[in-house]
């Protein structure tokens, strides 16, 4: 049975490093890249903008398309196929929930800005503490 690796990605460069690390280290594994949209922002406008869409799923896919396209491009460099999945809401919680059906998680240690960290929290730390499967933190 092949190893199933979950790689949660935001739009930071560190997330791309995490994906590269996962591709290199888990050469034969099934890799799934996950992106979370509608994250908490300073006045929760992002989440509400998403919730007000008529077709929330389609809007979420649309918002995630850029990050996921970049992930696929990186996977192409390694001649690999990856699965992608889009979740909504608070990244830490979404990742931990999702991780249950994987063997391991590879994640970048931090995202883009200080303000994001204030409102979203330290995602890697949340995952590290609560994840049911082994976690690799890339920094």
């Amino acid at each position: 049975m092949t190893t199933r690796v979950l790689v949660p990605m935001d739009d930071s460069e560190l997330a791309e490093s995490a994906l590269r690390y996962a591709l290199e280290t888990h050469a034969d594994a099934d890799i799934t890249v996950m992106h979370v949209v509608g994250e908490p922002s300073s006045m929760l406008g992002e989440a509400t903008a998403l919730a007000l869409e008529d077709d929330i799923e389609a809007a979420a896919e649309e918002q995630a398309s850029e990050v996921l396209a970049r992930a696929r491009a990186i996977a192409d460099e390694y001649d690999r196929d990856i699965d992608t999945v889009v979740d909504m809401g608070r990244p830490g919680r979404a990742i931990v929930d999702r991780a249950e059906s994987f063997d391991t998680v590879v994640i970048g240690s931090h995202g883009s800005s200080l303000v994001d960290r204030l409102f979203i929290g330290n995602v890697a730390q949340t995952v590290f503490q609560r994840c049911p499967v082994p976690v690799t933190v890339v920094r």
Partner: peptide, 10 residues
């Protein structure tokens, strides 16, 4: 993935 996940109380 529930839309209500966007607004959990915490």
């Amino acid at each position: 993935p529930k839309a209500s996940d966007l607004f959990d109380p915490s």
